[in-house]
């Protein structure tokens, strides 16, 4: 069974494009990353899945149920963390978790307490006086506390400090081991790449590709600069597999490497290396390199 399936899902806000003909399939038990730059249509897709907005055309199924007709049955089994999370300012964290737990028909408070402890959330202060990161923690606990079959998390890692980010990844991983599914949107591949099994890439409202992270990593492009102790002959690097855009100026080499760095590093080892700088290319660049920008997709500067 698929956790999420959309068919030609399209949303226009009046005349403004939301998403166009999105066909998405998320498998049960996987962690699926939904990636795209701001304005690509991630939140639109997610809010359609949650029946908060209605499609212009097309169709969405969640856990095998119709997103609109069976919303209640879906919401009993799904947790959602909105992208721009707003909670009730006058409630404390604990009250918020209690209220939201009640709306779900009550939750296992032992697990809630464990989540609060693991994320180092102080549940006694009011939402209003919490930092953005702490509010996000409350949202995460609220999402995880009911042990939902499907977690739909819209940019869950924005505003989290690295420690919480790590704990969040553990939680998602635990959910996966229990056979539960996570659908996580992000505009930063590095934030989710070690977590996800597969990623879908959305741009300008269109789902451009779905790839496993393993495949994407093989194709990852890295910009590399190597500084040598003395000038090196360009020919020594010309035929190294995976190297593109090679430039050699005296003792400085720069290029783009696709996939493994191994061959290049070995070639460089024949000379005295002073320093290596690598720069991972953005998701968008990897994507554009492989799938090309669509006709209506102007090349956004990375």
């Amino acid at each position: 069974m698929l956790a999420i399936r959309t068919e030609q899902l399209t949303k226009y806000y009046g005349k403004a494009r939301g998403i166009l003909d999105v066909d998405l399939e998320v498998r049960t038990g996987e962690i699926f990353g939904f990636l795209g730059p701001n304005g690509a249509g991630k939140s639109t897709t997610i809010r359609l899945l949650l029946d908060l907005i209605r499609p212009t055309s097309g169709h969405a199924e969640v856990l095998g149920l119709d997103a609109h007709r069976d919303r209640l049955a879906i919401d009993r089994r799904v947790a959602y963390l909105p992208g721009d999370l707003s909670l009730y300012g006058d409630l404390t964290g604990a009250q918020t978790l209690h209220y939201l737990g009640n709306l779900r028909g009550g939750v296992d408070t032992t697990y809630r307490d464990e989540l609060v402890r693991r994320l180092e959330l102080d549940p006694s202060s009011r939402i209003r006086s919490m930092s953005r990161g702490n509010r996000q923690k409350v949202g995460l606990v609220a999402a995880f506390q009911g042990r939902p079959e499907l977690l739909v998390l819209d940019e869950p890692t924005s505003g989290l400090d690295p420690f919480v980010q790590l704990e969040f990844e553990r939680l998602a991983d635990e959910a996966r081991r229990e056979g539960r599914t996570s659908f996580i949107s992000s505009h930063m591949l590095p934030e989710v790449e070690h977590l996800c099994d597969r990623v879908g890439i959305i741009r300008e409202g269109r789902l451009l590709a779905v790839e496993s992270i393993a495949t994407l990593k093989e194709r990852a492009l890295r910009r590399l600069e190597i500084e040598f102790a003395s000038p090196v002959p360009p020919d020594a690097f010309r035929d190294v597999p995976g190297v593109r855009d090679l430039r050699v100026d005296d003792a400085r080499l720069s290029c783009t490497v696709m996939g493994s760095l191994d061959a290049l590093v070995k070639a460089a080892a024949g000379f005295e290396v002073r320093g290596i700088r690598t720069q991972d290319t953005s998701l968008e660049e990897i994507f554009l390199a492989y799938y090309g920008a669509g006709p209506e997709a102007p090349h956004a500067a990375a």
């Binding site: 908060l52 919303r71 919401d75 799904v78 947790a79 721009d84 999370l85 939201l100 949202g139």
Partner: peptide, 14 residues
């Protein structure tokens, strides 16, 4: 307007 409707209506309440 406060933005809490998204959370509220993601729970099983019609």
């Amino acid at each position: 307007s406060r933005g809490t409707i998204d959370v509220l209506l993601s729970y099983p309440v019609p």
